[in-house]
Each structure stands twice: as C-alpha cells, then as structure tokens.
Design a protein around this nucleic acid. Structure first.
Lengths: 138, 138
DNA sequence: GCTTTAATTGACGTTTACGTAAACGGAAAC
DNA sequence: GTTTCCGTTTACGTAAACGTCAATTAAAGC
C-alpha cells in the first residue's frame, strides 16, 4: 500500500489528481453514482488508459452536484446550474437569457429559504410543546 | 354551474370543506397526485358516498406536503414531518425520541439554508460577471 | 330522459437515480 | 504465479412519484 501520494504535483492545487475511490470516500458517495453523473454529462474526467482521473475542477463540480442534490434539484437541473458556473460568455442575447435563468434559479432558492424559515420556526414551537409536556409528566 | 359555494359552514373555517378539484386548482397539483398522497397515508379525507371531502385540516396537511416537496423531501420523510405536527404527546421516552427527530430535521434544514446562502452568493457573482461582459460588448 | 361533467378505481407505463451482479483487466502483494 | 484489490463495462433490477388510459358511477343541467 502506498502511504504517500505519488503525485509530483502536490504543491499545485490546480493540477491535483484524484481517483474515483478517493472522491467516493471524501464525499461519501458511491463510485456507481459518480460514474452515473458522468453518464449524465455532469462530469468528464480524463483517462489514463481506461481509468478515470479527476482534476480539482472535476472535484469542484462533484461538490456542486452534491450540493444541488441536498437542495432537492434533479440531475438535469443541476447540470443547468453547473453550466452557469463555467460557461464562456457569448453574445449579448445569450447573456440576457442567461441572466434570466439566474433570476429564475434565485427565485426558487429564495422560496426554499422562506420555506425553511417557516419550518424551523414551527419545529421550535413543536419542541417547546414537547418540553412542556415532559415537565408535566415528570 | 354554481357560482356560490353551497356550504352553509362558510363562517367557520374549522368546518370548511373542499373537493379534490378545488384543492387541485388552488395548489396547482393534479388530482392524481392528491390521491397518491392518500395512498401513501399522508391524507385521509372523509367520504360522501365514494367522493372525497377535504377538511381545512386536510388542506393544511396538503400545504405541508407541498412545502416538503419544494424542499426536496421524499413523501415518507414528509410523512414523518407531518406526524410531528399533530401527534398526541405520549410518554416521556416517546417525547425524548421525538425531540431527537426534531433536532435531526433541524440539522438538515440548516444545512440546506447554508447551501442556499452559498449558492445565492455565487449567483450574484456570476451575474455580475455577466453584466460586465455585456457592457464590454455594447 | 338524455347528455355533459366531475369523480372514482384499477391497471399499466414512465422517468429518475441509482443498486447490484457478472465478467473482465491490470497492477500490487505475497 | 496466483491471489487480492481496484477499476471498468454491460446489463438488468428497483423504488419513488406520479402520468395516462379505460371502465364506472353519480350528480347537474337542460
């Protein structure tokens, strides 16, 4: 077993490399899932022969994917979001359309944020009721 | 066609009644979905003959279901959440367990809230880049 | 009485997001 | 040299959350 990463690029985070199992462990997601995200076009790691090699940019994309999942977005929605992050700015019409997409996404997120606030408050009140019941039963 | 609701209980919101299509329209969800939520045990409207009649309590539950969906929870998770809202306080052990469940849920929600904040900030920065590109292209 | 119109039940179909098993390849460990 | 450990590919399986008929029933309007 190798204890040190035979990397040679350790100092330069932009050129760090990862295996699928490393990412799998780091983010607690199965390799099957990671490969599936690739099938869906959300990742495209380099290859060394047949083996996948993930760059730190791939790693960031995976992070974004998982964050999207936590927020309940579908993989295709997540694809749209990620595309925003690293798409080249095209013509003005494109940019206009793009800004609209951002605004739609922002709206969804704000709705979610509001939903969360309400739910958290309700949980507070439920817990209070709970604790009250407990003291009565002591 | 009836223009006024033949309700007779209009004044008392606790006794208001709704048809499946009314709820369907109000919340923009298909009747199929509403029946499905019933199959999953999330709703149990009364019947007039074979027809479903929803109380305002059922309506609130439906609201909670849809809010849960917007937050990306599965129907069974949503079931757990809703159960919190109207479960009778039992013995102390139950209540203790219950409070733990609340804490778990709160943790998830706070994670989501953080994810949203980060994403919103990133969207801001992406939009700024966009607008910058646009002025350069003017 | 007849026809719309709304609602129900049952069944099968569909999409998404993976899980799981099988069969193979290559490098490492012993 | 063979076992072990990753990793790959292919393929089939599956759970969740409905959609989409099709066949019935029931009430409402004329």
């Amino acid at each position: 077993m190798l204890l040190l990463k035979e990397n040679g690029q350790q100092g330069d985070p932009a050129q760090e490399q990862f295996s699928i199992s490393e990412l799998s462990q780091e983010f607690d997601v199965t390799t099957r899932a990671i490969r599936f995200y690739e099938d869906e076009g959300l990742l495209e790691p380099h290859r060394q022969g047949r083996q996948r090699v993930y760059s730190s940019r791939d790693r960031v994309r995976l992070k974004l994917i998982l964050r999207g999942k936590r927020l309940g977005f579908s993989l295709s929605e997540i694809g749209d979001i990620i595309d925003m992050y690293d798409s080249e700015p095209g013509e003005v019409g494109q940019l206009q359309y793009f800004i609209e997409k951002i605004s739609v996404r922002r709206k969804t997120l704000k709705q979610q944020r509001d939903d969360i606030e309400v739910t958290l408050k309700e949980l507070d009140s439920i817990e209070k009721q709970c604790r009250k019941s407990m003291t009565h039963l002591d």
